[in-house]
Design a protein around this nucleic acid. Structure first.
Length: 260
DNA sequence: CTCGACTCCTGTTAGC
DNA sequence: TGCTAACAGGAGTCGA
């Protein structure tokens, strides 16, 4: 599903929108407009405006317009970006194998005949006007070891839940979290604040490596643990049956042998 | 402020 | 064969 890796791929693809003028917006799914945005308001700030920049913070894609406003594009767990009809990511884990135009929830038409659209079967994404970027923590790609120490490895909440908290560190989703803790040998249920300095460094190091690996390999589903994240799955390192638990409200797989 | 529980969405799949 | 229920997870809300 879209985590920081997929959104970064979308952002790079979205650079094809730079300098192009928006002629028309199709935003007829009210549910998809968030934080009070309406089809009328979106049309007013978009139509006639030029795309000045395409940025990203965590899982939030930001589209700066010459009208002075910024659109926030969220992809939920099944949202994909199509620019001029083409998708950089053809298929998402846990999403449909089909590809229906009826799933277009937000479409921008440029005056050159091209378009950009969010195609999201499950409608868990959304578009907002001038989203509060400061509500998101440090972007995971910029997370120095000190960020892990000061913002993640604190409190009594489970480490897994901490990693998923976008206000602490932005961009980590379920798959990146599980792969990182598996590589780092850390139990997802451990209270985040109980990590030793050495364990904090291990977490920071492995998070960095996971992000680099996943971006190189093309998605958050490319981890070594991924194929084993099923009921009865075994640890690819030692063959021990993986624990399957719900932590932080998400299905969590971990190796009882390696992770403590 | 912290933190767990709950809710939303819908395509896919497991099971009867 | 056809139906139902469970499942997937990002994000927002609510109450203790």
């Amino acid at each position: 599903m879209p985590e920081i890796i997929e959104i970064e791929i979308y952002r790079r693809q979205g650079e094809a929108m730079l300098g192009r003028r928006i002629e028309r917006v199709v935003a007829d799914d009210d549910w998809f407009l968030k934080e009070g945005a309406t089809a009328e308001a979106v049309a007013a700030v978009c139509e006639g405006a030029v795309v000045d920049a395409v940025r990203r913070r965590g899982k939030l894609m930001l589209v700066d317009l010459s009208s002075g406003v910024t659109l926030g594009w969220r992809y939920g767990m099944t949202g994909r970006l199509l620019v001029d009809g083409a998708a950089e990511i053809e298929h998402l884990e846990y999403s449909s194998m089909r590809n229906e135009p009826a799933w277009d929830r937000f479409v921008v038409h440029f005056d050159d005949g091209g378009s950009a659209r969010i195609r999201d079967p499950r409608r868990l994404g959304g578009v907002s006007i001038d989203p509060d970027e400061s509500a998101l923590g440090v972007d995971a790609f910029d997370a120095a070891p000190a960020v892990i120490r000061d913002r993640v490895a604190v409190g009594r909440v489970a480490l897994k839940a901490r990693l998923l908290d976008q206000t602490r560190i932005a961009g980590i989703g379920n798959l990146i979290a599980d792969e990182t803790m598996w590589r780092a040998g850390l139990d997802p249920a451990r209270p985040a604040g109980e990590l030793s300095p050495n364990e904090q460094r291990r977490l920071a190091t492995h998070l960095r490596a996971v992000l680099d690996d996943f971006l190189r390999d093309g998605g958050s589903h490319t981890g070594r643990l991924q194929d084993h994240r099923v009921r009865g799955g075994v640890c690819p390192r030692c063959g021990t049956t993986l624990d399957r638990r719900e932590i932080g409200g998400r299905t969590t797989f971990s190796c009882p042998q390696h992770q403590s």
